[in-house]
Amino acid sequence: MSERHPTLSVLDLVPVRSDQATADALSATLDLARAADSLGYRRYWVAEHHNMPAVAATNPPVLIGLVAGATERIRVGSGGVMLPNHAPLVVAEQFALLEAAFPGRIDLGIGRAPGSDPVTTYALRHGAGGVDDEAVSRFPEYVDNVLAMMSPQGAALGINGRTYPLRATPAATSTPDIWLLGSSDYSARLAAQKGLPYVFAHHFSGTGTAEALALYRDNFRPSAELGPEAAEPRTFLTVNAVVAETDEEAERLALPQLLSMLALRTGQPLAPQQLVEEAEKVELAPAHRDLVDGMRGRWVIGSPARARARIQELAATYGVDEVMVHPVAGAHVGTEAATGPARVETLRLLAG
C-alpha cells in the first residue's frame, strides 16, 4: 500500500432520528450524497435493513435510483442487497436497469445475511416463496444466476428439453460491478473462488477483519469471465466515523449511534436515533460501559487531523487503498429535521 491518503467512499444506512419522519431522513441522505459527490468521494453505498425504527434503508434499488439521479459522477451501489431475501432475476433486473440509466456508475454489493430479526426474515423469505435454510444454502447458485442474467448473453433455463433464455434487460451494453460482502469467512472464501471483489463489514463487526482479508487474498482465483479487472483481488475497508472541529464535539456527536448499536447488540427495544442532548441523559449500566467503550475504540472519532491519521493507519494496517466511511454523527436539539449537518461535516472535514 502506498503512503498517499486512501481514496474515500461513503456507506449510508439512512438513519432516522427521534425528530425525523422518513421523508426527512431521505432528504438528509440526498444532501449527504450530493456533498459526497462534490467532495470527490469515489462511491456511495446504501444498505438493506428491515423493520428497524432507526434505519430507513429498506430498499437499495429504490434508494440507488434516487441517489444516482441527485448526483453527477459518484458511483452508487448497495452495501448490500441481501440476496436470499429476493429472487435472483428480480435483483438482476433492478440493477441492470439502474446500470442502463446510469452507465458506469452502479455497484451491486451482495450479502447473505438477513438484514433483520428472524420474524421479519421469515416474512421476507416466505413471501418470496422460499424458506430461510434453502435461500441461504443456495446463495452461491443465486450469485451465479445474477451474474449470468445481467450479462449481455444472459442465462439459459432448461425446461422440458427446451432452452429458455433469461436476460435482465433486452439489450445490455454494460453491467454493474458486483461485490460480495460479509462479516464472516464464508463470503471471503466464495469471493476468492469466483474471482469477485470482496468487502468485510469492519464497521459492524470490528473483529476478524485481517483474517477474512488474508483468507480472500490468499485463495483468490482470477475469473476470465469477469474480465481484466478480476485478475487481482479487490477490497476496501468500512469504518464508522464522526469528525468535528474538536475531539470533544466529535465524542458528543458519536453518542447517539453508540447507544443505538448498544441496544441492537444487547436485545433492547429499538427506537429512532436519539438527539445528542437526549443521549447525554442516558445512564449506562455498568455491564454496558465496556461494550460501548469497545465500539468507540474501533470507530474513527475526533478532530480532522486525528481522524485522517486514524484512517491512514487503518488503511495501512489492512493493506487497502480505499476506505468507506459510515458517517454516524448525530444531531443536536433544534437541527432542521430534513438535514443531517454533522454527517455532512464529517465528510467535508475528512476530505480536507
Rank of each mutant, 00 (worst) to 15 (best):
L253I: 08
R265K: 12
P233C: 09
N240Y: 07
Q268W: 09
N219Y: 08
S260F: 10
E229I: 04
V243Y: 11
N219E: 10
R221V: 15
E232T: 14
R221T: 15
R252D: 15
S260D: 14
R252W: 12
L253E: 06
R234K: 14
T235R: 04
E225W: 00
T238M: 11
G227E: 00
V239H: 04
L237D: 11
S223I: 02
M261D: 12
L253Q: 12
A254Y: 10
N219W: 12
L237G: 07
V239C: 10
T235C: 03
S260E: 03
A254W: 14
A224F: 00
E249G: 10
T246Y: 05
T235P: 00
T235A: 08
R252K: 15
L237R: 09
P222D: 04
F220Y: 15
E229T: 13
V242L: 15
Q268N: 09
A224Y: 01
A254E: 14
V242C: 12
L237Q: 02
E245G: 12
P233V: 03
L262V: 02
V243W: 11
L259D: 11
R234N: 02
R234I: 03
P222K: 05
P222N: 04
R221H: 08
V239W: 08
A244F: 04
A263E: 10
E249P: 12
A230E: 00
E225S: 14
P233D: 02
V243P: 12
E245L: 07
L258S: 12
P233M: 08
T266Y: 06
L255W: 05
N240F: 05
V239D: 00
T246M: 11
E249F: 08
F236G: 01
R234T: 07
S223P: 05
S223A: 11
T246V: 15
L226Y: 01
T238H: 03
R234G: 01
A263D: 14
A241C: 14
T235W: 03
F220E: 11
G267R: 01
E229F: 02
V243L: 14
R234L: 11
L259P: 02
R234A: 09
L253S: 04
E245P: 07
E248Y: 03
R221W: 04
A230W: 00
D247V: 13
R217G: 04
L226T: 04
G227S: 03
S260I: 08
N219F: 07
L264C: 02
E232Q: 15
A231R: 12
T266H: 00
A224I: 06
T235V: 06
L258I: 10
Q268V: 06
E225T: 12
M261G: 13
E229A: 13
P233E: 11
T238V: 06
F236L: 13
P233K: 10
A244R: 06
V243I: 15
